[in-house]
Nucleic acid binder design. Structure first.
Lengths: 197, 197
DNA sequence: CGCGCATTTGATCGAAATCAATATTAGTGG
DNA sequence: CCACTAATATTGATTTCGATCAAATGCGCG
């Protein structure tokens, strides 16, 4: 009996085997391994050797980089449906990944992702990521704190609220949002309550 | 007689066919087309359909995006050896590309870049781009104006000064640097002369 | 309960935006 | 080759935003 099934996985549309089927999908499923982590654990550390991708099934993670001068910053958040490792495969992990809560993941070994049938899909996932970074970049350089935060929240809502609920929970701390947005925690807080009116 | 030869191209190490040889390289060369543009021309416009990559042989370009509210910003600069289109291929060009001076390019049609022998190379180019964006992102959120400008200049020097000269020319205007760094033109200017001492 | 951590809030300060005015450069046509 | 023009660069004065510092409040947990 197979513990894990991509066939029935609700996140398949955003995952690597989105369009895979038949033999290819079966082989893929067999090489994927599930993993579960509690809050505050490092899934990978910066400069760890890259061995495979991780697909987020539930929970969330932050990507943290330590800059040269000791400043460390949150450069992105990974939500369910996201794939970690898209910028790492050639060499090493460029950032650490830390869980923001209990998190379930699928580990996709590199050889499974590199199947020729999936090459196009992998490329398009990386491109999507690149485009998302472009958009995030504009928002971060051209908007002031309140609007910047608003843009962050809209993005988070879009990616976190899978059910069309009227509310959703943010898995990260305000200080982590602040680091991500390049603001002080105090400013972030003020912007937040300003938006709450 | 072949007008264009990747074999002898000094930029091949950073280009798509870096490690290609023999038959593959010959076929690649045959499908590439050269193109030359004067200053201030748009190579592609935002949302144009994507038909292929462009490798910069000489000159430079800026990548400009028009945000929703009319603000347009310079997202990146392309220097000789860079490849344009790494974030576009699935759909459309996410940004406009405008020459900053007379610029020579190689157009690489999509089918040529998608040759299976080059798949790995293409992926690693996209990853390099992604990593560069990560690094640029840290620098932009964690540094103040003078250091931010310094980081930009170091990057530009590294990518522009192919001959180990003691100086090099920046192909873009100060206002474009300002847009790229998310500063006012006045602040950029002040930071520049502060660095000049 | 009390400790540690996160959030909230206030007061102050500084960096950079903005506004505004010149200087410099480049480009154009006479 | 020289006005004339437009665009860019430079510089100063002022203001605004957000960082920083500091203190208080709230909260979860052993």
């Amino acid at each position: 009996m197979r513990i894990l099934s991509c066939r029935t996985c609700p996140r398949r549309p955003t995952c690597l085997p989105a369009y895979a089927s038949g033999e290819c999908l079966a082989a893929f499923e067999d090489s994927v391994r599930q993993r579960e982590l509690p809050e505050g654990r490092a899934l990978v550390h910066q400069d760890d050797p890259f061995l495979g991708y991780y697909a987020v099934r539930s929970g969330a993670l932050k990507a943290v980089v330590a800059a040269s001068d000791g400043i460390d910053g949150v450069i992105m958040f990974l939500y369910p449906g996201d794939i970690a490792g898209l910028g790492a495969m050639t060499h090493r992990w460029p950032k650490s990944l830390v869980t923001l809560g209990p998190t379930r993941l699928c580990w996709i070994p590199e050889h499974a992702a590199k199947r020729p049938e999936l090459a196009g899909r992998l490329t398009s996932l990386i491109e999507d990521r690149l485009q998302r970074m472009y958009r995030a970049r504009i928002m971060r350089t051209s908007l002031h704190s309140a609007k910047r935060l608003a843009a962050f929240l809209i993005d988070a809502a879009y990616r976190l609220a899978h059910a069309p609920e009227a509310w959703f929970e943010l898995p990260m701390l305000q200080r982590e949002i602040a680091s991500y947005l390049g603001l002080a925690t105090a400013s972030t807080n003020r912007a937040l309550r300003e938006l709450q009116q």
